[in-house]
Design a protein around this nucleic acid. Structure first.
Lengths: 344, 344
DNA sequence: CTGAAAGCGCTTACAG
DNA sequence: CTGAAAGCGCTTACAG
């Protein structure tokens, strides 16, 4: 292995000077620099990142913490992960995957000093992992939000997204719109923030409408699987037969909802309009009929989260970043006017 | 930050002894050990992994190299990644994501000394990245195979998988079976090994049959997208109208092939049987009708690849691992007998 | 069974 | 503009 010492000897300088030109941390006379650069080139020297990390107490490694990475993460989650990894890499950082559920284990990992910062996904409104993160004094950024707005985060703007979804359906004439969200193993009220915010946004966006047509909210929570989607179709059919449209915030259940509805004899979109919020356009294309989706800004948000964290680490920024980006409407074939008979 | 020195002082021993008990690398008198353990507990000491890495020249970090991680990796790839990350973590290793296409950049990263070993995905038959890996002297394992069988690998057994898929279709009476694979940007002959092996296996498995019915092979390569799938449906319809069944080795095109075929008036499975090989059962369930799939053993293989690499790093194993696991047939509703008129 | 000490390959005040 | 040297927090022969 060729070390900095080898380069220094060949260029006839001290290792300090070599370090200065490699890092650009101090002025070095042009010809000294040239000698060093030549030596580096000739020896094909590459700085050892571990030694650098120990000496500078900066590893340039970021952790990505996600509880469900083992299960089957949906396409949107993957986009977050991949874009965060790319964003990090472009700024000279590496991303390690930490599929950790346990708070205790998380603290242990954090305390090991491997990572300079952490990105946390699937954030809950009250999330003990965030407390651990704060305790650990490792800088972090959230992909999602807790109720504490002071922490740095990057999140999907569910309020705007759901509002637009509802607006889109209303523009077709729908007045009875249900919401299908995701059921998790979490205690009620402790679900990922995304679920709670989507529900709140739905209640908001449909409030005036519901008042007018005198109907209670129609909210269904099912597993994020095909089976969950079919369950939602049945519940919708049995318990909310007058609903003519659905806003879905449950990517994994999308296909099942469509299949289940059709199995119950309801055609999409003639009998039921569906809009799947916070997913990928690829998922929409896979389903028949093509789903109208609100595409999640995951490819941007993952990178923005990495950038926000790195800015924080490098002291580039003054104030904790709070980024909120709505999903983008991508029309498919799953939304149409409500059936005549059901229109009120 | 509490260091080993702090622990040593509190326990009244040298830091060497502390190191010995933490690593279990040397016998230590029971009561000395107890004192040290107490001190560790009281100070909530956690060994610094960076210092350890520098001193021991082992980082316990593994790199996962995948060229297409930025694009949209399919569900199977994700299963590989996640199970590899989990397998590594369980053995005390971390996995960093290196979404790198460029050979040069790969060599740079490898030379930095951050990782003890690497896992390479999307391996081509002749893969220059493998040469770089060998040059770099960083131990590695392949997920996939080159033509050089001496390297350690873990791979899907495409020969068996395709053979079983063809056998399954034949048991329903199909005699004219097409193959749909994936088109990549790679030069011909330089595609990922999986594609070439699948094609070879198809030619093998259908050889006798084709000889009997006097028909040439029917192989179609399309993009791994919904559009690609629709293109395959059209090509099948136009160029191979007598094919009554398809084996698909193109996860991303599955949904498009079904939608495209139906759009051309061919019902599945009445007019065309489809079996999607090397994918996830979840994908099969999403599509209507539910696809018969050969589920990839990705959740096992990712972990096995990590294990193989770690065994190699720790000198646990003698011979380079060569693991080949076939996919598992999961019947859906996309395979049935061929239409009467077409049966020959 | 335990310790003193060298060393891993860098960075970074500090001095000149 | 350049260098000598301390130090990052561990591991690991070596000696006793």
């Amino acid at each position: 292995m060729v070390t900095m010492r080898d380069v220094a000897e060949r260029a006839n300088v001290s290792i300090a000077t070599v370090s200065f030109v490699i890092n650009g941390t101090k002025r070095v006379a042009p010809q000294t620099r040239a000698r060093i650069e030549a030596a580096i080139e000739e020896l094909d020297y590459r700085r050892n990142v571990v030694a650098r990390a120990l000496a500078s107490s900066r590893t340039r490694i970021l952790a990505l913490l996600h509880p469900d990475l083992e299960a089957r993460p949906n396409a949107t989650v993957i986009q977050f992960v991949m874009s965060a990894a790319h964003g990090a890499r472009e700024r000279g950082y590496d991303l390690v995957l930490w599929p950790v559920n346990d708070d205790e284990q998380m603290s242990h990992l954090l305390a090991g000093g491997l990572v300079d910062g952490a990105l946390l996904m699937e954030v809950r409104i009250c999330d003990s992992r965030v407390d651990r993160l704060v305790e650990s004094r490792v800088p972090f950024a959230l992909i999602g939000r807790t109720e504490n707005d002071d922490l740095p985060y990057v999140d999907i703007d569910f309020a705007t997204t759901i509002d637009q979804a509802v607006g889109h359906l209303r523009s077709f004439g729908h007045e009875r719109i249900a919401l299908v969200t995701q059921r998790t193993k979490a205690a009620p009220g402790d679900e990922p923030g995304r679920i709670m915010r989507a529900e709140a946004a739905y209640l908001d966006a449909t409030a005036a409408l519901r008042r007018r047509v005198r109907r209670p909210p129609a909210v269904i929570a099912v597993e994020g699987t095909s089976a969950g989607g079919r369950e939602a179709a049945r519940t919708l059919h049995d318990d909310f037969p007058d609903a003519t449209a659905v806003v879905l915030v449950n990517e994994g259940a999308s296909a099942g909802l469509v299949k289940g509805s059709r199995a119950l004899g309801r055609s999409i979109p003639d009998d039921l309009s569906i809009i799947s919020a916070s997913t990928t356009r690829e998922l929409g294309e896979m389903i028949e009929p093509s789903l109208t989706v609100m595409a999640a800004p995951a490819p941007q948000l993952g990178r923005l989260a990495a950038d926000a964290l790195i800015d924080q680490l490098e002291g580039v920024q003054d104030t904790p970043p709070h980024l909120l980006i709505p999903c983008t409407l991508v029309p498919g074939q799953s939304v149409g006017p409500p059936p005549e008979g059901r229109r009120r």
